[in-house]
């Protein structure tokens, strides 16, 4: 069984910005360990000589020309905003550093 503790999940939940109760953390730790056990054989299959595939179809050099396209108005941009002021999105205080 993969070892995933409640603290591990608490850390992941913090990284993922999802508030979780103690109960949720415990339940998630159990489920996560279960799932990781089911998928971990993946790490034993491919050796260092096997390249990774990040894109299923290999394309390269897909670019856009540098010319201005469509732009939203500030009103359109802010149309879904939970809170706004002075044509800007409004958020509560930021605890973190800048």
């Amino acid at each position: 069984m993969a070892e995933i503790t409640r603290d591990d999940v608490a850390h992941l939940a913090q990284l993922a910005r999802i508030e979780m109760s103690a109960d949720e953390l415990d339940r998630m730790a159990g489920e996560l360990a279960h799932i990781v056990d089911a998928v971990k054989s993946v790490s034993e299959v491919a050796g260092p000589d096997i390249p990774a595939t990040s894109h299923p179809i290999a394309l390269r050099n897909v670019f856009r020309e540098d010319s201005v396209g469509h732009v939203l108005t500030p009103t359109e941009a802010l149309s879904g905003a939970p809170d706004a002021a002075d044509d800007r999105f409004k958020v509560p205080a930021i605890l973190d550093e800048e």
């Binding site: 993946v42 790490s43 299959v45 491919a46 096997i50 390249p51 990774a52 595939t53 990040s54 299923p56």
Partner: peptide
């Protein structure tokens, strides 16, 4: 590893 499995 999963990306490598993708290659396989």
């Amino acid at each position: 590893s999963a990306q490598k499995v993708r290659t396989l």
